[in-house]
Amino acid sequence: MSLSKAEKSYIQTGLLSNPPLRGDGRTLDDFRPIALETGVAPLANGSAKLIIGQDPHGGGGGTEVLAATKLEVENVQDEGADGGRVVCSVTCSPTAYPNLSPGALDDLQYDMTTILHQTLFHPSLHPPNLGIIPGRKSWLLSLDLVILSDTGNVYDALFMAARAALWDTKVPRTRSVEYKARQSGRNAPKDPATMDVDPEEQSGFATRKLATATDFELADYWDEGEDLGGRSGWPVAITLNLVSPTHFLDASPPEDSAAPQKVLLAFSFPESSHTKLQAIRSLGSGELNVPQLKELIATGEKYAKQLFSALNSKLKEEDIRRSQKARDRFAKR
């Protein structure tokens, strides 16, 4: 979005004045309202849509992101990895960036994909339950995000949507299957080896450890599966827009063009241990020195914590809403 010099200076002066004033009356650390819904794509293993700053009256506007995860079975021998793989991709809808050429759109998509992929699928965050049969089969988790419209602060929206979709992801329960030769071994009569389903069922993990397991089947169970492991550890990101000496959150497009320098910080808040800084990105032009960055990380953590707890309570609320909805539907039947 191009701005005139007068608009730019109007926004910058407003941000730096005392008290700081923004075009829509927010304070520096105010977010626009965020609407979130999980379970929006019935065919995905987990999905969420999120919109920042929509008109509360159902009008248009706002940064809208749709995120969905899909699990596929992979052979470890071929391209898969033992314990599962995760792949992330971000697609920008051309309607979100109507003034970008297809080439520029590809570049933008690529940038976003890289940032998300490198942050979310860092080994430290790898979900533990993506393996099916050790050394043979595993799940490939693909996380796809689509940006449907962009009115500023798209990175925070992407990370929040990704977190919500991963939170919502259910991994189907599997049970290992093995071929059992008859006790008598080769001397046995011509009777062929019979396929046998492992009778033990009390622990899915125990059956997985069987080294002889060659294949698996899906356990028939009432829900869609178990939660993706380590789901409380998925990070949230916070973008600090810098107008030296201060910073603000959730920039609208004019503010974004008036203050192009940004720092993106991704934090994860695992239940068991300390807060972890998962990623730092400096976006836009301009430079930062170490003391500045230290200070920004400290304040960024505070904001991220707020965002994290707000998002968590919203996600739990969504879980309750959906189980209630499912129950109602079941009762109606």
């Binding site: 007068a6 075009g23 009256h57």
Partner: peptide, 28 residues
């Protein structure tokens, strides 16, 4: 000119208030 005049806080607040009102009215 590309330079803004000095704008006091009250005026800035009034400007953003008017702009929010316009957005609200147009949403309806």
């Amino acid at each position: 000119s590309n330079k803004n005049d000095d704008i006091d806080t009250a005026t800035r607040i009034a400007i953003s208030r008017v702009s929010n009102i316009i957005q609200l009215i147009s949403a309806h």
